[in-house]
C-alpha cells in the first residue's frame, strides 16, 4: 500500500485506540484526582464491563431480541452494574482501610484477582464476541496526482467500518458529558471541592464518604463503558484487563494525575503514536517510546503535562 493511505489507515486505527483509552484513563484519573488512591483493579472493571455486555447481549439474543437492542441495553446496564459493584467495594473495603495509599493498592490487587478468577470460574476462558449494532465496511478514497491533475481512486484494502467511527464519536460524546458534569453541575462542584481539600469539604457538610463511593463507581463505570464500546471489535476475555490498566496508567501519568484535559491529550498522544509507530516500525518500539515518555515526564515534569504541582 502507498504511504499516504497507509498512514491514514494507521491514524484511523490509532483514533479507535485513543477513544477507548481516553474513556478508561479518565475513569482512573477521576478516581486518583478526587480520592488520591491508585486503583489497580481498574482494568478488571473494564473486563467486567465487556463480559457483562456479552452476557446481556446473548441473553437478549437468546430471547429472540435484536442484537442491536442487546447492545444498547448492555451499553446502559453494564456500566451501571460495574459502577455499583465498585461503589460497594469502596464502601465495604476501601473505606474500612481509610484510603491508606499502600493498603489501597494491596486491596485493589486483591480485588483484581477476585474479579479475574470469578470471571474465569463463571464465564470461562473463551473470548466471546458481541455483535455490533451496525457494522458496514466503508471503502475510503484517496487522491493522487497523475497526469498533472488530482485523481480520486480507491486503494486496495483501504477502509474502515461504520462501527469504528461510531466508537470514536461515542467516546467524544461521553468525554464531553464527563467534562460537563465536572465543570457545570452541582455534583461536579462537590467532587472538585472534595478533590481540592477533603477536610474543608467535610467541614462544609459534604458527605465525603458518599462522594468517594460515587467517584469510585463512576470511574469503574467509565472503564466498563469503554469496554462495552470495544467489545464488538475485540472479544470479551477474562484477561483483557491487563493492557488497558497499563496504558491507562501511562496516560494518566503523562497527562497529569487528576487532570481531565491532560488525560485526554495524553490518550491521544499514546493512542496515535501506538497506532502509527507500530505500523511503520514495530509494536515493541511503540511500547518502548510510551514507557520512555513516562520516564521523561516523571523526571522533568513530575506533575504531568497538565497537572498542578502539589502545594504541600
Amino acid at each position: 500500500m502507498e504511504f499516504g493511505p497507509y498512514l491514514m489507515l494507521a491514524s484511523l486505527e490509532g483514533a479507535v485506540t485513543t477513544a477507548v483509552l481516553s474513556l478508561t484513563a479518565v475513569g482512573l484519573s477521576l478516581v486518583f484526582g478526587v480520592m488520591r488512591v491508585v486503583n489497580v483493579a481498574h482494568g478488571e472493571f473494564f473486563m467486567l464491563g465487556a463480559v457483562l455486555a456479552w452476557w446481556i447481549a446473548s441473553a437478549i439474543g437468546g430471547m429472540g431480541g435484536n442484537p442491536a437492542l442487546g447492545f444498547v441495553i448492555a451499553l446502559v446496564l453494564a456500566p451501571l452494574v460495574v459502577g455499583s459493584i465498585a461503589a460497594v467495594a469502596d464502601l465495604t473495603i476501601l473505606s474500612r482501610i481509610d484510603y491508606d495509599p499502600e493498603r489501597t493498592i494491596v486491596a485493589t490487587i486483591g480485588l483484581l484477582y477476585i474479579m479475574q478468577q470469578v470471571t474465569l470460574m463463571t464465564y470461562g476462558p473463551d473470548a466471546r464476541p458481541v455483535e455490533a449494532p451496525f457494522n458496514a465496511r466503508i471503502a475510503l478514497p484517496w487522491v493522487e496526482f497523475a497526469d498533472g491533475r488530482p485523481q480520486i481512486y480507491w486503494p486496495w484494502g483501504f477502509g474502515t467500518t461504520t462501527y469504528k467511527l461510531g466508537v470514536i464519536v461515542a467516546a467524544a460524546i461521553v468525554l464531553l458529558g464527563v467534562w460537563f458534569v465536572m465543570a457545570r453541575t452541582r455534583i461536579g462542584l462537590i467532587m472538585r471541592a472534595t478533590q481540592l481539600d477533603r477536610d474543608m469539604a467535610l467541614a462544609f457538610g459534604i458527605p465525603v464518604g458518599r462522594v468517594y463511593a460515587f467517584v469510585f463507581g463512576l470511574g469503574a463505570g467509565l472503564a466498563a463503558l469503554a469496554a462495552v464500546l470495544v467489545v464488538p471489535i475485540q472479544q470479551a476475555h477474562y484477561l483483557m484487563g491487563g493492557d488497558p490498566l497499563l496504558l491507562s496508567f501511562i496516560v494518566v501519568i503523562i497527562g497529569g494525575l487528576g487532570s481531565l484535559p491532560g488525560t485526554v491529550l495524553a490518550a491521544l498522544l499514546i493512542g496515535m503514536s501506538d497506532g502509527i509507530i507500530s505500523v511503520f516500525f514495530s509494536p515493541t518500539l511503540a511500547k518502548i517510546i510510551a514507557t520512555l515518555l513516562v520516564a521523561l515526564v516523571l523526571v522533568f515534569r513530575p506533575q504531568g503535562l497538565f497537572g498542578t504541582r502539589a502545594t504541600r
Binding site: M1, L9, F158, V279
Partner: peptide, 26 residues
C-alpha cells in the same frame, strides 16, 4: 496484539493466497 488492521496494508497486492495462523484470545 489485540488489533490487527494496521498490519494488513503490508500484504502485497499481487498476493494470491494468504496463509494465516494465529493463537490466543484475539
Amino acid at each position: 496484539e489485540t488489533s490487527f488492521t494496521r498490519y494488513f496494508p503490508k500484504i502485497p497486492r499481487d498476493t494470491e493466497v494468504i496463509y494465516h495462523v494465529m493463537v490466543g484470545p484475539a
